[in-house]
């Protein structure tokens, strides 16, 4: 008798399945998404830095591109990823030391509120400055 087992890649999709799940699962999925996003960003960042090897002209053209409003919006998305991942990581660290386990939902809510406020201020600075 052959039991049914789904392939690992399909099962990994459960990391992001928040349907009818509680707040902790949202935190888990957000941490995965932002974590993967930040790793992708790191490699993009290194690729962009490698433009320096091609001389000042290619770098200057990239800098002018980076000042465009739609590119600044990407900066805000990057900051959102950093704030969500970092602050949620703080929740994971605290609960991992058995601190605030019973209040982990409130902790997540409070930290995400901090993230939203910080992101709002940062967005104003990015677009206003």
């Amino acid at each position: 008798m052959a039991n049914l087992e789904y392939p690992k890649v399909r099962r990994a999709g459960r990391w992001f399945d928040v349907r009818r799940r509680k707040l902790g699962m949202w935190a888990y999925a957000l941490n995965r998404i932002t974590g993967i996003g930040l790793v992708v960003y790191l490699y993009l960042h290194l690729a962009v830095l490698s433009l320096l090897l091609r001389g000042p002209r290619s770098w200057d053209s990239f800098v002018s591109l980076a000042r465009a409003p739609y590119f600044l919006a990407l900066d805000v998305i990057l900051l959102a990823g950093i704030l969500i991942h970092g602050l949620n990581g703080l929740r994971v660290t605290l609960t991992g030391f058995d601190v605030g386990v019973k209040a982990q939902k409130a902790l997540f809510g409070a930290l995400m509120l901090v993230a939203v406020v910080a992101l709002g201020v940062a967005a104003l600075m990015i677009f206003g400055g």
Binding site: K22, G24, A27, N31, F97, K102
Partner: peptide
């Protein structure tokens, strides 16, 4: 464990497995 706490949410008998995992971590640390 990456702290989704779904085990504790779903447990029909209030065993709180996530709480036990965190307590084990504290003890090991």
């Amino acid at each position: 464990c990456h702290s989704a706490f779904e085990c504790t949410e779903a447990c029909p008998q209030a065993v709180d497995p996530a709480g036990k995992i965190m307590a084990l971590r504290r003890e090991i640390t």
